[in-house]
Design a protein around this nucleic acid. Structure first.
Length: 139
RNA sequence: ACGGCAACCGACUCUAUCGCCGGCAUAUUUCCUGAUUGUUUCUUAUCCUGCAAAUGGCAACAGAAGUAUUGAGGAAAUAUGCGGGAGGAAAGUCCGGGCAACUCGAGCCACCAUACUUCCUAACGGGAAGGCAGCGGGGAGGCAAGGCUCCGUUGACAGCGAGUGCCACAGAGAGAUAAACCGCCCACCAUCCUGCGAAGGUCGUGGGUAAGGGUGCAAGCGCGAGGUAAGAGCUCACGACGGGAGACAGUGAUGUCUCCCGAUGGUAAACCUUAUGGGUUGAAAGACCAAAUAUACCGACAGUACAGGGCUGGCUCGCCUUUUGUCGGGGGGUAGGUUGAUGGAGGCCGAUGGUGACAUCGGCAGUAGAUUGAUGAUAGAGACCGUCCACACAGGACGGGUACAGAACCCGGCUUAUGACGUUGCCGUUAAU
RNA sequence: GCUCUGAUAGUUCAAUGGAUAGAAUAACUCUCUCCUAAAGAGUAGAUCCGGGUUCGAUUCCCGGUCGGAGUA
């Protein structure tokens, strides 16, 4: 239940392009989160969300630092995933989202874990208001 | 002993929980392939009815289509188990090669790269050994310096005795059978000065002179003798430098000796000359499979004939053509996927050959392979270092750090980054002898 | 991944191997004005870093650092 396998990662170039062109965005320091609802048949069955994790090459020149941030972010997303999936499954929604690290220093794991509590709350709140304004997408 | 620099070694370990990637085995599910066996339908020899089996009926073997079963192979997904999962630089992308596509008759020019010699290597701008030169240190000898010799270290180290260019400022003169500022020397000499006079001096004019001074990074080989009005490689001896010829040693660079010559400043990381090498592009190369949508072309079925389309922007006439839809096939090709792609000019150990780089032979072990990009996170313990306690050791407490850095087609080098401990070398300080 | 290209005052740009590295603008000081602006005069300020070639390097060569561009 805490897994983060290949099917839960966002790999399709077309979905990535449309996410950054037409998706919605909010910031919880040090992350910038893009998200977008998508039709359920675009994702593999049983997977309510695909996520993408990114760091800027401009802010972290060395590949070692970028890898470390992506690994920490993945651990945090992995531990907060059941909360998000529970909400999505109860409302029958499928989404894609991206997590961009925008700070230029590395925080430790406990700090990032607290940030992810807020990210989860904010994301669920955003999706709820989105569903209220677009009830037709709720199948 | 401490500190600094350089080179080398090495690249923290274990446990628990939760995760990632790919491999193998087993099980389950789904799909595909062709086979066996059974069965249904169709075709049909023969047979039946009949004068006659063309038509019709029953219908074997065989064939075709469908379907079921059995065991087999393959693919995908899930679960369980087993074992595997970053580097010495994976980095920079500075060289060389493999591999691939495209191009290609030969030669010359242009462009780019390289540059002491011999060897190593698949190849290299890399490496080894040697030569020469610079720098540092030691030694013998000597009054001292130069030179000699040994060790270490550095060197883009072909050619400026092929041509052309450049050498600011300063300086008289910056590159040639050149140049006269001061100086040195000779001749003439109005006036002036000294002098009884002869004559001397000063200023001036004309000439000689590159020894001395001065300028400058650099003034054109050094030193001595001869020579001269004064001087000058002008001449000579000795020596330095460069070139040519010969002898000897060496594979060779080169070294030693003898003779001859003198065009005796620097600069080729200035143009250039000589020799050698270089086709272009780069895995996002290339090969294969291929949804959805649109559809060249082909077939079947259905509809349409005062229709539709083209010749024409519109209308009329004329000519040509069937056209539209559905279904099936079909080629190119997009998303996407597979491959290229991980066993290699490979690693470790030993022996032999070689001064060495390296080569040959023998043995051993062994799946990193992602593709929005895996190899991780958290907690605990240990190892290492420092301080304090204890101090014979063992030990205890606290604190701190554990570098540089992450494969992306592969290999050989180079360059750059790198904490602590350890090894070696050099330098410095202090102490003792 | 591959291929190019650049770095000069606070900023934008110049500069044959030889200057005290130049110009504009910004900054500061002074003059002018009741004050400010404008104008005038003056001052300070730089060759990305480390080596090498050369008598001499912003320039030539090598290594590094940091930017920018192209290529699907």
């Amino acid at each position: 239940m805490y897994s983060f396998g290949k099917e839960e990662r966002l790999c399709s170039k077309k979905l990535i392009d449309s996410l950054f062109q037409s998706g919605q965005r909010f910031i919880v320091f040090p992350y910038s989160v893009h998200w977008m609802t998508c039709p359920p048949d675009a994702l593999p069955s049983g997977i309510p969300a695909q996520a993408l994790i990114a760091t800027s090459k401009k802010k972290f020149r060395h590949a070692v630092d970028r890898n470390r941030i992506k690994r920490l972010t993945r651990e945090c997303y992995r531990t907060h995933k059941p909360q998000i999936y529970q909400f999505l499954n109860s409302h029958n929604v499928t989404i894609v989202l991206s997590l961009n690290y925008v700070h230029n220093e590395i925080f430790d794991h406990s700090t990032l874990n607290h940030k992810f509590d807020r990210i989860t709350d904010t994301l669920i709140q955003h999706i709820s208001t989105h569903l209220d304004s677009h009830p037709s997408q709720q199948s």
